[in-house]
Amino acid sequence: MRVVIMGGGKVGSFLTEILEANGHRVTVIERDRALCESIASRTSATVIEGDGCDMRFQEEADVGSADVFAAVTGDDDDNLVACQLARTHFQVPRAVARVNNPKNEKIFNRLGIDAISSTTVIAELIEERTTVGDIITLHTLKKGRLAVVELDLPEDRCRSCNVPLRDLGLPQGCVLVSIIRGDEVIIPQGESVLQPGDTVIAVTEPEREAELKRILAG
């Protein structure tokens, strides 16, 4: 499968690595030259320096021949514009977007764009398969029985940092899926230790979400 990703930050970089590891061909469109160089040095993805909201760069990325277009920047407006361009002008079969403000999710969905706020689930939507064993599936997520939480740990006074995960007393029904540390993606184990500035992606029962956030981020 061929996937074009707009956005080469933490989410786009992580997503590129996941999809490449599963044998997909990936093209990344990113404005920042340093991020472009970082992705190009660590992956075999085709990297285009430019604005994914601009038709010229989507054309250069050959969005028209892609199976999926995924917009995963930190700006919901940009993600919406880029997905709409990919759908209406290049007729991409599927558009997936990262939504940073949950209030925007219904707008994206009404326009035929798969909208979600977790990197892991974006990969899930693209591949249509489960990546965390039997713990989560799209069905349970869509039914609201589980919540996907993405947390940035504070740089200072991080109470959960430098403590083995097994000793944090995480609530029952919560599973840490991944730790993103700079350019590194870590699959957490009981002995894993969080560090200030880490991004943590977790799956939890909705009623445990506040407790999980309190333990991890204070």
Rank of each mutant, 00 (worst) to 15 (best):
M1G: 13
I5P: 01
I5N: 06
G7V: 07
G8E: 01
G8M: 03
G8D: 02
G9I: 09
V11I: 07
L15C: 08
I18F: 08
L19W: 08
A21K: 14
G23W: 04
H24R: 13
I29G: 00
E30M: 02
D32C: 07
L35F: 09
C36R: 04
E37F: 04
I39D: 00
I39P: 01
A40T: 03
A40N: 00
R42E: 13
S44F: 10
A45Y: 00
G50H: 00
D51W: 02
R56I: 04
Q58G: 03
A61I: 01
V63T: 02
V63H: 02
G64A: 14
D67A: 11
V68T: 09
V72S: 06
V72I: 07
G74F: 12
A82V: 06
A82G: 06
R87V: 10
Q91F: 12
Q91R: 15
P93H: 07
V96W: 02
A97H: 07
V99L: 06
N104E: 09
K106W: 15
N109P: 05
N109K: 14
R110L: 14
L111N: 03
D114I: 11
T120D: 12
I122Q: 02
L125G: 14
E127L: 14
E127N: 02
R129A: 13
R129T: 05
R129C: 11
I135V: 15
H139M: 12
L141H: 10
K142V: 06
K142P: 00
K143Q: 13
K143W: 09
G144Y: 09
A147S: 15
E150V: 12
L151G: 04
L151H: 09
P154K: 11
D156C: 12
C161V: 14
V163M: 11
P164L: 08
D167V: 11
G169A: 08
L170N: 09
L170K: 08
G173R: 03
S178A: 13
G182L: 01
E184M: 11
I186W: 01
Q189M: 14
G190N: 10
E191N: 12
L194N: 00
L194I: 07
P196K: 14
G197T: 08
A202N: 10
V203I: 11
E207S: 08
E207F: 13
R208F: 10
E211S: 14
L212C: 05
K213M: 15
I215P: 00
